[in-house]
Design a protein around this nucleic acid. Sequence first.
DNA 1: GTCTATACTTGGATAGAC
DNA 2: GTCTATCCAAGTATAGAC
Lengths: 221, 221
Amino acid sequence: MTPSDPRTAATRRALLDAATDALREVGYAGASAREIARRAGCNQALVFYHFDSVTGLLLAALDDVSERRLAEYRDTLAGARTLRELVDAAERVLAEDVDAGHVAVLTELLVAAASVPGLDVEVEARLAPWRALAQDAVARAFELVPLAGMVPPEEAAHVVVATLLGLELLAGAGDGLATTDRLFDRARTVAALLEPEPGPSAGPDRATEASRAPRPRTARP
Amino acid sequence: MTPSDPRTAATRRALLDAATDALREVGYAGASAREIARRAGCNQALVFYHFDSVTGLLLAALDDVSERRLAEYRDTLAGARTLRELVDAAERVLAEDVDAGHVAVLTELLVAAASVPGLDVEVEARLAPWRALAQDAVARAFELVPLAGMVPPEEAAHVVVATLLGLELLAGAGDGLATTDRLFDRARTVAALLEPEPGPSAGPDRATEASRAPRPRTARP
DNA sequence: GTCTATACTTGGATAGAC
DNA sequence: GTCTATCCAAGTATAGAC
């Protein structure tokens, strides 16, 4: 479906990346064809040639980011065996996304979906795999805590997704991001309380050393 | 500060209400001076005469909504004595806000704050009282549950605010609102588990009858 | 495939009549 | 205080040259 001409692919790639950056830095309202093309270093008309419309490009950018990030999430979460490891994995991969602005792409389009006529179904469809992933993670966590079964995984997953998006939202204005770090520390504390002993066979704190290394933090422009 | 001329007040009132409606229905991107004036039934130039700029009007609308809703929240939460009552109160007042679109005003401006240059400090300032309110409610709840003190109220409040905003965000696209109802049912279930006996003196289920009455639901346009 | 040029639309903002 | 008229900037989208 994608043409094999290398120049075409390069332009499309540049536009997709530029669209992501634009959504992160100037939001949906500021992500115009001209603004994106300027960032991509190409002409404004190419947006319409390759993606029909600005909205088409933005949705394609969301597809692009989702595909790559979902793979990363699935791999990382698959390796987690304890509640602690689950929290650590979530922190690692989520922090990466927040820093790179991948979450912002989703939130911006989600907000726009509430107003722009046909956009809601498109965004909802692209949100579905994330719901499924969250539900999977929640189901896994529920196997590990005594309270499991009190809350259906779909609803818990819905709240999890909502919370992550809300945190990203608050990070946009004000001090939000600073607290997100400490947040995961708290989550670990709570996890330690909820989690039953994983058995005395393994070392006492295997997951700790690897995951507690200070993560490099990229500043927002 | 507000002039006493009734006609002036009426126009300002109409513009504020129209701005709220516009933010809810067409989002920040669609809330132009012309669009708002059309809804208010007056001329586009009056936006600039009374509020200097479109952004000025939108922030004034946020002030207006916040002031009224904060009073309502404080009253409702003040009356809650048990965890169950706290959850019930939160559901009642929050559902009202979601239906009327008051939360949307905040989310829209919050998202815009991430992109529009000077907007972040303005919105952050107006978010502060809500943070404080959430912190108060959380602190109250923590007095009632055994796990209290594990998590500092500021961080918990931050998460609470984020979750509510996230739920509103998801409600915009897709089936979000439907699950919000069931969500509070789950919260009640969890609350019942966490809450120690309130003492055998009071009747067994005083709060139940009053707050479980089916709430009238207004549909989104 | 990519660019320039352009038609058309919408929005922010101001001047001046009433 | 409110309206009409208007200027100007920015955006979507298309036609046609290269």
